[in-house]
Design a protein around this nucleic acid. Structure first.
Lengths: 339, 339
DNA sequence: GTTATGTCCTTAATCGTTTAAGCTGCAGGG
DNA sequence: CCCTGCAGCTTAAACGATTAAGGACATAAC
């Protein structure tokens, strides 16, 4: 491998000069700089990130914590687009990303240890068990952290507007004349809590009372569970006219249950999802859903983290809310005409 | 940060002793080793991967090249599960993974440069334009490379048995009585070529002649294109009784087209996908498809790469074929009974 | 008693880069 | 002609680890 030493030798200057020339320092003559740049190019020089990191204590590496309480992992289109946006924003700033796990070599360690071992400049916690002591430890460490969809005081959080999103979605459903709306939510994370409150807020606003039997706990990203719960809901004496699912993917299970019962969407019952993943637009009928701004969610968390790394003293706006938008789809029928 | 120096100081030994003790070298007394291990633990020592990499020229980092000729990128369930398997296999061997792109800092460079900059020990090319000169350059470089689903002579390739898979799938469809089978394939990559040959092989074996108008070029992972092509196929005077799609995801487009035409799957026409992503099992009717062994594909490519890195002189079996299995689903109807 | 053997440790060099501090020579001011 | 200032370089130390080579001491062998 060609190092600065080779260039220095070739150009008859010291290694320090090469380093400064290549890094655009000011105390290098224009002629020398040219020659060095040229030689570097000619010899095919590549910087050695390890050496640089060792000296500067900056790796230009971002850690990404991506566990999977929501099932589906990278296969979850929501997370994969967030990750892709993180990656792309990081890349355009010269950062690479490293997945953080609990092992170094064969030995079990902590997330924090892994971060220190790799010397990541900062970490994005995109999905994890936020109650895990190891996560807390990481959040409270010296390493800059940005969390997505969860708030830790004193840290930067980029959160999707789950409350507002669900409120708007519910508003829309109600505007279509629905009053008997069932709500299958995911596990009780802060995401779920927020969506629930958005849902109830909308209902109250419109003077609609939702019976308890309409609100069920399901599982994120799990069509099977939604299938069963939907069956139950369909079996109620007073059946809902619309069901809101934990997410677009799990919604598929609900849709199947409806079909199997000999009913049709949206003629007999309406269905709404959440996330707005591409899948929601290719199924038929097109899903009514809240489209989370996953790209922005990923982009901003990377951007804010990098900002924080590069100017640590900048005033921290410690919470940013990313809004999405509604996608009107044929899966929610307009029954307001019927009186 | 605590370094070996701190431990050495605390224990009254040299840094070298600490290094050797922590790395399990043989020439350290048991008592000393204990003391050092203890102290390391107590002080919260974490190794510095940059320093280690600098000295040893090993980073325990694998590069992953994951471009996107097939559309959908990480959101493509096929690739995301492959990636997840790579990651998990890498992790259990103490490796982290780094996405390889063409930029370092702000400057545009090559994949190879990026690999060298980060000092990755090896690279897995999971999805890329294999004709790209930059890819060729990387493959021919000093860095160990494993390619997935593409063969470069002299390199290790882990390939999914596209020919055999499609042959088996077609055998199955034919066994159900179908003779008029349409085939929408993806862009002309080696994957497509192999699947085509598997398809034709099965047809010939069974003495079935496929008219040219039944074989169409679609686009991977793109329901829209399959939607249009399916419409065309449905409009033929001599309509096929079964359509094979480029993959499960794009199949959705075809299914929609069928529905829209007032036909039903599988009663009026059958449909088969390829990949066997989870989606294929949750839609209704359950898809008949070839389930690629994505986990094994990812796991093995990581495992083989690591093996190659750690014992470069081991005999290279330069090609491994990973087989999947068929998933029988209601989307292909048994019409053999009808004579 | 001398030599060999082995154990356990230290010394010192090295990986490739950055950077504070110092040196050199020339130009301009006085 | 001397001093100052500056541009443009070099020197040297440092980052944190690894590792070949060597040293000290104890024990065993003859």
């Amino acid at each position: 491998m060609i190092s600065m030493k080779d260039i220095a030798l070739e150009c008859g200057v010291s290694v320090a000069t090469v380093s400064k020339a290549l890094n655009g320092q000011q105390d290098i003559g224009e002629e020398t700089r040219q020659k060095i740049a040229e030689t570097a190019e000619r010899l095919g020089y590549t910087a050695n990130s390890a050496a640089r990191a060792l000296k500067t204590n900056k790796t230009f590496n971002l850690g990404v914590l991506f566990l999977d309480p929501m099932h589906g992992g990278l296969a979850h289109e929501f997370f994969s687009t967030v990750l892709d946006a993180i990656r792309s924003e990081a890349e355009s700033n010269g950062y690479d990303i490293t997945f953080i796990n609990r092992g170094i070599g064969n030995r079990e360690t902590s997330y924090l240890q892994h971060c220190r071992y790799r010397g990541v400049d900062g970490v994005i916690i995109a999905s994890a068990d936020f109650a895990d002591p190891q996560i807390i430890e990481l959040v409270n460490s010296e390493i800059p952290v940005v969390t997505i969809d969860h708030i830790f005081n004193g840290n930067i959080s980029i959160i999707s507007d789950n409350t507002g999103g669900m409120e708007t979605l519910t508003d829309y459903i109600i505007s279509k004349g629905h009053k008997k709306i069932a709500f299958i939510h995911g596990e009780k994370t802060s995401v779920t809590v927020n969506r629930l409150s958005g849902f109830y807020r909308s209902c109250e606003k419109h003077g609609i009372k939702i019976p308890d039997e309409y609100v069920r706990e399901g599982v994120f990203h799990d069509p099977k569970t939604c299938y069963s719960i939907t069956k139950e809901l369909l079996g109620l004496k007073d059946r809902p006219t619309c069901i809101v699912f934990p997410d677009d993917y799990s919604c598929i299970g609900g849709i199947n249950a409806v079909w199997e019962s000999g009913l049709r969407i949206p003629d007999d019952i309406s269905a709404a999802g959440y996330d707005g993943i591409p899948l929601s637009r290719i199924i038929s009928p097109e899903l009514t859903t809240w489209v989370q701004n996953t790209t922005e969610l990923g982009r901003r968390s990377a951007a804010r983290l990098i900002e924080q790394i590069q100017k640590p003293k900048s005033v921290i706006l410690d919470r940013e809310i990313v809004r999405g938008h509604i996608q009107e789809g044929a899966s929610v029928k307009d029954i307001s005409q019927l009186g």
